[in-house]
Simulated scan of single mutants.
Amino acid sequence: MRLLIGFDLLDRQIVDRDGVPVGKVDDVELSEDARTLTALLTGQSALGGRFGGVLGRWITAAAGGAEPRRIPYDLVAKVDSAVHLAIKRELLAPPALEKWLDDHLIGRIPGADNAES
């Protein structure tokens, strides 16, 4: 299937196999020869790179050096008005900011480790 990255992917909502939102496509990763789409990238650092200039640097800096969330393209089941994944959201690595908040803030709240999901 042939896709136009800027038209078919960028800024599209990503949903898991149950329709639960995962994020938006902020950028993509291509193979070294730039012929194959290898991953979808989400997060501020990926988005900042698309803007460039002062605004892009500011958006990237606000991410605190966090790497973008990388979703391998082979997990994509279909692309229409959204990007549908073939797996549940819980099987993906958490976004860097979410993990940092959990490790440094939420996880330090007394009783947080006993909370049910």
Rank of each mutant, 00 (worst) to 15 (best):
R69C: 10
D27F: 03
E90W: 10
V20C: 15
P21I: 08
D11A: 08
A77W: 06
L85P: 06
L4M: 13
L3V: 08
R12S: 06
L92H: 01
L85G: 07
D11C: 14
V83H: 13
I87W: 02
L105N: 01
R70K: 02
G6F: 14
R35K: 09
K99N: 02
Y73F: 15
Q13E: 15
V28K: 06
V15M: 08
L30F: 11
W58Y: 11
I59M: 04
L4K: 15
L10M: 13
A86N: 06
A112N: 04
T36K: 00
V22A: 13
L47K: 15
R12V: 01
S45K: 01
E98G: 05
K78M: 05
R69H: 05
L85D: 08
V54S: 04
W58M: 13
A63C: 00
G52Q: 01
F7V: 03
T36S: 14
D103R: 15
S45A: 13
P95S: 01
A46M: 07
G56E: 02
G64A: 13
N114G: 09
D103C: 04
G107W: 07
R89G: 08
K99Q: 13
D102V: 04
N114T: 14
L75R: 12
Y73P: 12
I59R: 05
D11T: 14
K24W: 07
D103F: 01
P72N: 08
I87Y: 00
I59P: 06
I71V: 10
G48L: 03
P95F: 05
I106E: 02
A86M: 03
L55E: 12
A61M: 14
G43H: 05
L37K: 00
P72V: 12
R50A: 14
P72C: 10
L101E: 03
G6R: 11
P72R: 07
W58K: 12
D16P: 07
V25I: 03
A96P: 00
D33C: 02
G43M: 10
V54I: 13
T60S: 04
S117I: 12
L55Y: 08
E67I: 04
